[in-house]
């Protein structure tokens, strides 16, 4: 499967990556090579084969809903690039009109 620079731009946008102009060509070439390799999966007959999402028997794990100590706020915030008044701080989300 060949992928174009335009598709690279689209995927980068979905992945929240601001890739540079210089990288687009390289990514298109490298991703095309890998996707072409992956295309060999098409020759495998998989009609009626259940997909494997995990190798373990998937069972739901329940626990009692009891209050337990958790990470103190200062520790939870300690690695944040920016914090303010006990909260994580992010750039403004809503535009001024």
């Amino acid at each position: 499967m060949e992928i174009t620079q335009k598709e690279v731009e689209h995927v980068a946008k979905l992945a929240r990556l601001d890739i540079g102009e210089d990288e687009k060509g390289t990514f298109a070439r490298q991703l095309s090579a890998v996707l072409t390799y992956m295309d060999q999966l098409k020759e495998v007959e998989t009609a009626g084969v259940e997909p494997t999402t995990t190798v373990l028997p998937a069972v739901n794990v329940f626990r009692d809903d009891v209050v337990r100590p958790s990470l103190p706020r200062e520790q939870a915030l300690a690695n944040a690039p920016e914090q303010s008044e006990g909260f994580f701080s992010v750039p403004r989300i809503l535009e001024d009109r």
Partner: peptide, 24 residues
């Protein structure tokens, strides 16, 4: 990027779905 592509609309079944079946 590869993973995002494999999970994106239009390619999910062809790549991710297929790979999970071959994993079986």
């Amino acid at each position: 990027m590869l993973g995002t592509y494999a999970l994106s609309a239009g390619y999910y079944e062809a790549y991710y779905g297929k790979a999970q079946a071959v994993r079986t």
